[in-house]
Amino acid sequence: MIPGDLKYTKDHEWAKIDLNHAVIGITDHAQKELGDITFVEVPETKTILKQGGALSTVESVKAASDIYAPVSGEIIEANEALADKPELINQSPYEKGWLCKIKLSDPKEASKLMDARQYEEYLNTLKK
């Protein structure tokens, strides 16, 4: 199921936006496409990112996927547990598999992202 309280990008990142902060991760669809995740480049705190800028890389045995920031801002917290347990993204993409927390520099940007219904429609177009 696609959680209703999150925002989504076409690159299959999700963002949980709460006033001035956003928690970022990759969607269930993204983790399924990658398969067993073997490595996550844990984002570095204090990094300042623009919307769409490279945030991290997530790897499986046969693929590597670049993760882009859904929103602009500064990384204030990262999910260090992923360094030892990259499989958390497979097991729990929307909860334990979160990547980082960003302090928003432009909260208005969130309006450019898809909501759950739009993301679901987008996934359907990909299937075709």
Binding site: F39, E59, S60, V61, K62, A63, A64, D66
Partner: peptide, 12 residues
């Protein structure tokens, strides 16, 4: 660690 390599990552 083949994801570092050209046959998967191409120009990256």
């Amino acid at each position: 660690l083949q994801t570092r390599e050209q046959h998967i990552r191409r120009e990256k």
